[in-house]
C-alpha cells in the first residue's frame, strides 16, 4: 500500500500495535538499515548484526502495544537493538574470555566505499581504530543516547569506568578528526 510507505512513524507504530503486519513491514524497511548499521558497528559482524536486528524486531512486535510515545519509534527500536547487542557482547565475553582483551577490530570497512564524504570515511576509520570497549561505549552513548548508568548495566562495568572510557574515546575521535573540525 503506497500510502503507508510515506505514513509517519507514529501511525505505523499504532497500526502495528493493533496487529497490522503490513505497517510493521514498512517500519522494518524504514528503520532496519539504520539499526543494522548500528548493530554492525557495535558487533563488527554482519551475520551477528542480522541476528540481533531480527530478534529486536520480533521483540518490538510483541512490545509495541506498550509503546508510550509512538512518534519516538526509532529511539525505541534503537534501544531494543542495543539491549540485544549487549546481551550478545556479554555472552561472547563469558564464552571466550579472550574477547575481553582489547584488540583492534577488523581493519577496513566493507562499506567504506559507500560512504558519502571523505569526512565520513575518516570518521569510520577513526571509530574502527578505537579499542572495542571504547567503541561500544561511544556508540551506546552517542547513537543510542543511553545514560552512563544504562551503559554500565548493559556492559557490566562500573559507572566511573564508562565515564573514563567514553572520555578517552572522545579524545581519540577529536584527535583523529582534528583536520575536519
Amino acid at each position: 500500500m503506497a500510502a503507508l510507505d510515506s505514513a509517519p512513524d507514529a501511525l505505523l507504530a499504532q497500526r502495528a500495535a493493533d496487529g497490522d503486519e503490513v505497517a510493521f513491514a514498512v517500519i522494518m524497511r524504514r528503520h532496519g538499515p539504520y539499526l543494522k548499521a548500528f548493530a554492525t558497528r557495535l558487533l563488527r559482524s554482519n551475520s551477528d548484526a542480522d541476528d540481533v536486528v531480527q530478534e529486536a524486531f520480533i521483540q518490538a512486535w510483541r512490545r509495541l502495544p506498550d509503546l508510550q510515545d509512538p512518534a519516538a519509534l526509532r529511539a525505541w527500536l534503537t534501544t531494543m537493538v542495543s539491549r540485544k547487542t549487549t546481551d550478545r557482547i556479554r555472552s561472547r565475553k563469558q564464552s571466550d574470555p579472550l574477547e575481553d582483551i582489547e584488540i583492534p577490530d577488523l581493519a577496513g570497512d566493507p562499506e567504506d566505499h559507500a560512504l558519502g564524504s571523505d569526512k565520513m570515511r575518516a570518521l569510520a576509520r577513526v571509530l574502527d581504530t578505537l579499542p572495542r570497549d571504547q567503541r561500544q561505549i561511544w556508540l551506546l552513548r552517542e547513537v543510542a543516547g543511553h545514560s552512563y548508568t544504562e551503559i554500565a548495566e548493559r556492559l557490566d562495568m562500573p559507572v566511573p569506568t564508562i565515564r573514563g572510557r567514553l572520555a578517552r574515546a572522545r579524545a581519540h575521535v577529536l584527535d583523529g578528526m582534528s583536520e575536519w573540525r
Binding site: R29, G32, K36, L115, L127, R181
Partner: peptide, 23 residues
C-alpha cells in the same frame, strides 16, 4: 559535533545500504 557526525555516519550507511541486503 563529533557525536552528531557519528549519527550522520550511521544514517549515511543506512541510506546507501541496498534495501534488499538489509531486508
Amino acid at each position: 559535533q563529533v557525536g552528531r557526525w557519528s549519527r550522520e555516519l550511521l544514517a549515511g550507511e543506512a541510506e546507501t545500504a541496498p534495501v534488499e541486503a538489509a531486508g
